[in-house]
Simulated assay, not measured.
Amino acid sequence: MRENPPAEQRKGIEMTEEKKKGFFGKLVEGLSKTRNNILGGVEQVIHNFKAIDEDFLEELEEALIVADLGVGTTIRIMEDLRVKIKERKLRDVQDVRGLLQEELVEIMRTDQDPYIFERERSVLLVIGVNGVGKTTTIGKLAHQYKSQGKKVVLAAADTFRAAAIDQLVEWANRASVEIIAQGENADPGAVVYDAVQAAKARKADILICDTAGRLHNKKNLMEELRKVNRIIEREYPDAYKEVLLVLDSTTGQNALQQAKQFKEIADITGIVLTKLDGTAKGGIAIAIQAEHEIPVKFIGVGEGLEDLQKFDPVSFVEALFEK
């Protein structure tokens, strides 16, 4: 006979479930414009046809391209849909909705555990252009990891802008975590070196480094990131290294272009998509994984500290199809 968990444990489970429900609700709400953008056209096509034929599939393809999924992603989706329709001998256009849902989850699902770094002693390099919410993302991650009982150290290695350093210092104070910072235009490599020494001395669980994202000066940025990588590999060889690229989802195809450019200069292991609430361009989450095979690991759907959450493809697609 199974025993019921003690009251305190039940309360903890209920609170976690409540939090999950709360975030799902925010996700459903935040994706409303994206839902209308992607599914509005799809629903129209389904409504206009009685049976699945070539005309229907062509109209569906057009609706997906218009919905900001991009040509490459749409072609991949349509190829897979055609195969499945044939295999399952589908005739009814209504079946395509469920098939599309299934396909989007498949595209975004990753075989590997995306959060190994959270269980290891690790270094997180966070990159991205100015204005995407990079420093805020680092602040929220620092707050969440500290709340989980982890020892966190921040490194203000985006020394190109004094405002970035000040902002990160503010976040470090809010989250009550240690920060290693120098002045504006200091050598980012030196900041990271100091931060690594501090992280080792304090036996930190996680070191999060804010790095510059000046894409217009690609050569310098590449050199800077290489230097930072060399310092981490030399000084902290046992640390698990994670490279997160922060993208602003409101920029749509532009974010896709940024992912392509950053992928050329850095070994990106994951994407953080910010500002998903209130944009019609949330389909970018699907396009990035389909075209660049970089998993989305975190998404932001609001200003609150808890509004940055781990990305779950099933919940995302469910929220997208929620009526």
Rank of each mutant, 00 (worst) to 15 (best):
L57H: 06
M222F: 03
D158N: 11
K275T: 14
V71N: 00
T16C: 02
E306W: 12
G133M: 10
L27D: 07
N37R: 05
I179G: 01
T74S: 09
L256F: 02
Q309N: 10
K84P: 00
R97E: 12
R174T: 03
E184S: 03
L247N: 04
R2M: 03
A162C: 07
A195M: 10
V301H: 01
M78H: 06
G133T: 10
S32H: 14
A162G: 06
V105D: 02
D68Y: 04
F23R: 04
N4T: 11
S122C: 07
N4R: 14
P114A: 06
L99Q: 08
S147F: 08
L276H: 03
V83D: 15
Y145V: 02
S315L: 14
E264F: 00
V126K: 01
F49D: 00
A157C: 08
G25H: 06
E118R: 13
F298C: 04
K134S: 06
D307T: 05
K150R: 15
I288E: 07
I299Y: 02
A195E: 09
K33M: 08
D55C: 00
Q144P: 06
E223Y: 06
K150F: 02
E235H: 15
T279E: 04
L168Q: 09
G12E: 15
T34M: 07
T34R: 01
A212N: 04
K33T: 00
D267Y: 04
K140R: 14
L154S: 05
E18P: 00
N185R: 13
Y145H: 14
I288W: 05
K203I: 00
D68C: 11
D95C: 13
R226M: 11
L81Y: 06
D277Y: 11
K20V: 10
P237T: 13
I206P: 01
E43I: 05
D187M: 07
I138C: 05
D205M: 12
T211N: 08
E3L: 12
R91Q: 07
E242T: 10
G252A: 14
A287L: 08
A186S: 15
I116K: 14
N37W: 00
Q309W: 00
E264Y: 01
N229M: 10
V296N: 03
K140S: 10
T137R: 09
R82H: 02
I38Y: 05
L276D: 09
I46R: 01
A7E: 13
K146Y: 02
I75D: 05
S147I: 02
D187H: 04
K33Q: 12
S122G: 08
V177W: 07
E233H: 14
A195R: 01
G70H: 10
H216G: 14
R119N: 15
G22Y: 10
E170M: 12
E43H: 13
E14A: 13
A266I: 08
A319I: 04
F24R: 15
F316S: 07
A239N: 11
K89D: 14
D238H: 11
